[in-house]
């Protein structure tokens, strides 16, 4: 049975095993590979997307659970002009290998939507994604810069 949801502004309908995690539906049936597979148990955050605005780890999220929902992936963030977060990421030269960064950026976008002026403690609490290259110090600095860029609008 087809499952319908909105993906990056476009209505999509997929006919897959309803238990298939959203991550694989988006990567394989929709061809959007910006969101990554890291652990398969929602421990690392590489697969973070927005589900109705909430940063969600999608490697364990059955696609049937998002029927009717609005999904946003990294591909929806500043496709034409970089978002404040992407801008800050480039200003601070955050990524190293870059593999975890789609998930990081989606987690940060959601944090700033909810809390426009996060403290370091707020950032630590909200962003629990793993970066094996260890870009954390630049991530923290970039989140503050992004928050400022958003305020300046």
């Amino acid at each position: 049975m087809a499952i319908s949801f909105n993906l990056n502004g476009n209505p999509v309908s997929v006919d897959v095993d309803p238990e298939m995690p959203l991550l694989w539906v988006v990567r394989e049936t929709q061809g959007l590979t910006g969101t990554k597979f890291g652990c398969g148990i929602a421990a690392c955050g590489a697969c973070t997307m927005h589900v109705d605005g909430v940063a969600t780890r999608t490697c364990v999220l059955p696609v049937e659970a998002v029927a009717g929902a609005t999904i946003k992936t990294i591909e929806s963030i500043g496709p034409d002009t970089p978002s404040a977060v992407q801008d800050a990421w480039l200003t601070h030269q955050v990524p190293q290998c870059g593999y975890c960064q789609s998930g990081m950026i989606m987690a940060v976008e959601a944090l700033l939507d909810e809390n426009p002026t996060p403290s370091d403690a707020d950032i630590d609490d909200a962003i629990t994604n793993i970066c094996r290259c260890g870009t954390y110090d630049r991530i923290r600095a970039a989140v503050h810069t992004a928050a400022q860029l958003r305020r300046e609008g």
């Binding site: 959007l32 590979t33 990554k36 992407q86 990421w89 870059g98 960064q101 950026i105």
Partner: peptide, 20 residues
Amino acid sequence: PRLDLPEKVNGTAQFGIDVT
């Protein structure tokens, strides 16, 4: 600025696992 970073902040960088 690193020349490979723009595509690493918008999801377009292609890693091995992304190949189709």
